[in-house]
Each structure stands twice: as structure tokens, then as C-alpha cells.
Design a protein around this nucleic acid. Structure first.
Length: 344
DNA sequence: CCCGATGATTTTAT
DNA sequence: ATAAAATCATCGGG
């Protein structure tokens, strides 16, 4: 972890001390016009530079030595000045910390699915979702089918929470460590609380991207589980013969406008022992499939009409003028098409 | 086991 | 919000 912390500090440049500036004593003298022997400053700087490469115990001793060095206050002020000059470029980095729509989306989904949120309440919420998704089973034993689903969902939730806690803990640990490190270092170089805060923000963002991956994969797992157990297509049963009879009767007697009102749908649902949404599904399917069939059959009729017309024409080729209208379409056979009329 | 029928869901357009 | 269209997944007969 120490190694990581050091690397992170180095990468992010939170030190605020570009190496070129620090490593060059002449540069410092330019900034700070003091006639000290550059040997001293160079020595101190050298120690600072190597200190991060040492083990913690070793570094502890060195740090102590540095802190007691007679040049320390002067160096500190030099560092302050250098930092002041470089501060502008650091300020240039925009914080830009939005609520992140991606993670919000995932959070909402997990919450809705009952993976996140309270322990038991989550299960009931999920059950509610299940019931809603099923569109209200007619009389099917609902909870029986969902026991396995709920079990697996709980399993996912446990895993999710365990991982989340692990990440949280690691994040806190790491943050603490970095903050301690920065506080420690603030004795020898200028680090404002605001910068520490910024560092914490950076760390949290890093960890939150990891968290997002966790949430992403959890969402994926839940969706797979959902489709595996909850998709009503997987346990569909055909309606009874008489139900089909009732529905077809209504459809064909309202062929001009086969859009039953809400009331009519309720009536049909009652007669067929199915739900209103099932009635709506049925009519949706029926309309499109009837239309498709009509279109298909009509096209077929047209094809054959064309063919017979062509045949007839070629047979009676000696005839001076073809008297046929040459428009063999208009297969008015299933003329009862509901589409042309306005529906609304 | 193949294939069309069929109920349900998802996507698209208005 | 609603319906059409596309698609999915199962059923049921050959």
C-alpha cells in the first residue's frame, strides 16, 4: 500500500513540485536570492528526492533528521514560494465533478431490482416488480415460481454487498493512508488542506469507477436472472378454445375497427378468464397478423392474376388489341380491410 | 424433431 | 401514451 500511495502521489503531481524546479539548486537561487552555499540546499533536496525510495523505517529516521535540519525553515519558505508560482497551473485543473448519469442509472436499476437498499424490503420490492412484470398472472401460482428466482437474487445481493463493502473499506484505508502521508509531508513542504481534499476526491473517483464496474456486472447478472425466470414468454400457455372463440368473434364482428375500448377489453377479459393486458396483447397480435395475412394473400392473388392475364394475352396474341384492363390487382376478395378508415 | 401458430416482450414511430 | 412492427420463446401437431 505504501508503494501505491507513493506512486499515486508521483503520478498525479500533487506534490506541486515539478522535479525540474526542485532538483536544480540554481533555479531555487533564482527564485530566492540568498547566498547560502548551495551544497546545503542541494543536500537536503537530494535527501527529499531519495526519501520516497526508501523503506518506511529508513524514511522515518531520515525525515526526523530533515525536520531538525537547520536549513529546514528556509527551505520550507522556498518551497512555499515555488509553489505559489506553480499554483496557477494546478488551479487550471477543473474539478468537474458531476453526479455521473451512468452510475445514477445503475444505482436506480439496482434499487428497483431490490439488490441495493434494505435487506428484507428489497425482497418485497423485487416481488412487486415481478408481479408487475408478469402483468398480473390470471390465476397462476405466482410466488411458487419465484422462489428460486428470489433465492438467486438474494445470492447476487449478498455478493454485491460483500464486494461493495470490500471496496469501501479499501477506499477508506487507502484514503486514510494518503491523508496521513500528506499530513506528514506537510511538515516539510506546503500542502494546503484544500489540496488534501482534492486528493481525496481523486481517490474517491478512482474507486467509484471500480464500484461502477461492480454495479455494472451486478446489473448484468440481475438482467440475465430476470430473463431466465421472469420472462413470461418462457411459460406461456395458449388460451382455451372458447377464449379464442370469444376473442375471434369480437375481432371479426368489429373488423372495421378492431380496437376494443377499455370497457370492452375488461368485458372480454372477464369472459375469457384472462387479464386486460392479455386481451390487449391478443388484439395487438391479431391486428398485425390479420393484416399481414391479408397483404400476403392479396399479393399472392395478384401474382396469379398477373400470370393468368399474361398467359391469356400470349395465347390470344393474334388478337389486335388486348381488351383486358391490364390491372388485375384489386383482389377485392378480403376487401374488409380495417386499415383505411381513420382510427381515432 | 421440424415448423407454423401463438402469446409476450421489445423496439419504433406518431 | 398508444399502436404497429419486429422479435422472442414456447406450444402443439405432423
Amino acid at each position: 500500500m505504501d508503494e501505491q500511495a507513493r506512486m499515486m502521489l508521483g503520478h498525479i503531481g500533487l506534490t506541486g513540485l515539478p522535479h525540474e524546479d526542485v532538483g536544480d539548486p540554481d533555479n531555487i537561487r533564482k527564485h530566492h536570492n540568498m547566498g547560502q552555499p548551495q551544497q546545503d540546499i542541494g543536500d537536503i533536496l537530494q535527501q527529499i528526492m531519495v526519501i520516497t525510495d526508501e523503506s518506511l523505517d529508513e524514511a522515518q529516521a531520515r525525515k526526523h533528521a530533515l525536520n531538525c535540519h537547520r536549513m529546514k525553515p528556509a527551505l520550507f519558505s522556498v518551497l512555499c514560494e515555488i509553489k505559489e508560482r506553480t499554483a496557477l497551473s494546478i488551479r487550471g485543473i477543473q474539478e468537474e465533478d458531476g453526479p455521473d448519469p451512468q452510475i445514477m442509472r445503475l444505482d436506480n436499476m439496482l434499487l428497483a431490482e431490490g439488490v441495493a437498499g434494505p435487506e428484507r424490503a428489497g425482497a418485497s420490492a423485487a416481488a412487486a416488480v415481478v408481479a408487475a412484470a408478469a402483468g398480473g398472472s390470471p390465476s397462476e401460482g405466482g410466488s411458487v415460481d419465484h422462489s428460486e428466482y428470489k433465492e438467486k437474487l438474494a445470492q447476487i445481493r449478498r455478493m454485491y454487498h460483500a464486494e461493495l463493502e470490500k471496496y469501501q473499506q479499501a477506499c477508506n484505508e487507502f484514503t486514510d493512508h494518503v491523508m496521513n502521508l500528506l499530513r506528514e509531508q506537510s511538515r516539510t513542504r506546503p500542502i494546503s488542506p484544500k489540496e488534501i481534499e482534492r486528493m481525496v476526491g481523486i481517490i474517491h473517483r478512482k474507486f467509484s469507477t471500480i464500484q461502477m464496474q461492480l454495479k455494472q456486472s451486478t446489473c448484468e447478472a440481475v438482467m440475465i436472472l430476470r430473463s431466465r425466470f421472469l420472462d413470461a414468454r418462457r411459460k406461456r400457455r395458449n388460451f382455451s378454445k372458447q377464449a379464442a372463440e370469444v376473442l375471434n368473434t369480437y375481432f371479426y364482428s368489429h373488423l372495421a375497427n378492431p380496437y376494443p375500448s377499455e370497457e370492452a377489453k375488461e368485458d372480454l377479459a372477464r369472459k375469457c378468464s384472462i387479464t386486460v393486458s392479455q386481451v390487449a396483447n391478443w388484439f395487438g397480435n391479431k391486428r398485425i397478423r390479420y393484416k399481414r395475412n391479408v397483404a400476403k394473400l392479396q399479393e399472392e392473388a395478384n401474382r396469379y392474376a398477373v400470370k393468368t392475364a399474361v398467359d391469356a394475352a400470349s395465347v390470344s396474341s393474334q388478337a389486335s388489341q388486348a381488351n383486358s384492363p391490364a390491372t388485375p390487382n384489386s383482389g377485392g376478395y378480403p376487401a374488409q380491410c380495417y386499415t383505411p378508415d381513420g382510427r381515432l
